[in-house]
Amino acid sequence: MHEQSAAPEAKAVTIAPLQIEAGSFQLPQANRHRVLIHVSAATRSYCGQVGRHFVRRAGDIDLVPAGEEGGFEAETQFKTLELSLSPALIENVATELGSGSFGRLETRHLLRDERIEHLARALENDFRVGSPSGALFADSIGIALAVRLLELEEKEPERTSRLSDLQLKRVLDFIEAQIQTPLSLDTLSKVAGVSNSHLRTWFKAATGLTVHRYVLRRRIEKARLLLLASDFSISEVAHLTGFAHKSHLAHWMRREIGETPRGLKRTRS
């Protein structure tokens, strides 16, 4: 059930407190930019696009630009604030700031930004008491939000000159959780929230390894531990660690650590 304001669509900025039931939460394409701020306790959700679970916490922000769609599967009921901004507002502010090239916003997930959250709360508080501050207040909030969103876009090259600690942790955690399944650079880049080319460059800068080499080594290490500490067959270990077959595992294990699956099995006896 959605509880939202009846503010006219023509306004430059509107706010709608939403209560979303557990299950599928879908945002169809719209002709306005949408900023959603999670206001409930930690909510576990599943994103089919990247094939993994996320935990949304109070203050987490999702930005869905005009013309884009979004959504996820929530395990429990949750509340969010949906801010809706007209593209004309963003374009006008960008022009005034001399930042016309940033007229198009990029999709963002689980963003943390105290200024956006503060502006949203101020607009929500005014809305709750009947908007006594009038259109001027709402317009001022809308402009301030537009400025902040444009600042994020302008600072993107500097801000994302490397993977943040959180981005890197998400990628590493995803690799560990999905080590058995085929992994692609496209999937991992979506988990990190960056482009494929940036992930390739920044992942190596952060870990000293290419994405492929890191995943390979994590698979070999997990396979080594399973061979030493479990009764799984070599074929079963290969399957559990994402190798095509036991010969594939043996090839890379010999190449990377100078050991073979059979040799490791023998050390247990």
Rank of each mutant, 00 (worst) to 15 (best):
G130M: 05
I90T: 01
K222Y: 05
E3R: 11
H245P: 00
L36W: 08
A30G: 12
R254M: 10
F25T: 13
S86T: 15
A41K: 11
F243R: 01
V237S: 03
V237N: 03
A135T: 12
A58S: 13
E154K: 08
P182C: 07
I61V: 09
F174R: 07
E154F: 04
E259V: 02
V64Q: 06
S45Y: 02
E9Q: 11
I20N: 12
S133L: 15
L216D: 07
E106T: 10
G59P: 05
T210L: 03
V13W: 05
A206P: 00
L105G: 00
H239K: 15
A6C: 03
I37K: 09
T181Q: 14
V237M: 05
L172P: 06
T95P: 03
K190V: 03
V64I: 13
A120N: 05
L240Q: 15
E91G: 04
V194S: 02
G263R: 03
P17R: 14
N92D: 14
F137H: 13
G134C: 08
S133H: 11
I234T: 13
S140D: 04
P17F: 10
D60M: 05
G67A: 02
N31A: 14
A223D: 07
E114F: 11
L149I: 07
W202P: 00
Q77E: 10
E75S: 10
L85C: 03
E9I: 10
L27G: 04
D139I: 00
N92T: 15
H198S: 14
I61C: 01
E69K: 11
F78W: 15
E21F: 05
T43E: 08
V194G: 00
L226K: 08
T207C: 00
Q29F: 00
L199V: 04
M253T: 08
Q4W: 07
R255Y: 05
P8T: 05
L172Y: 07
V13T: 14
K204N: 09
R52K: 02
S133Y: 12
L85E: 03
A223Y: 07
I141Y: 02
L119V: 00
S269D: 09
A7P: 02
G48R: 08
R217L: 13
I143E: 07
L63S: 00
R213T: 13
V129A: 01
S84E: 14
E69Y: 11
L209N: 11
S164M: 04
A206T: 01
S269F: 08
R104T: 07
R170G: 11
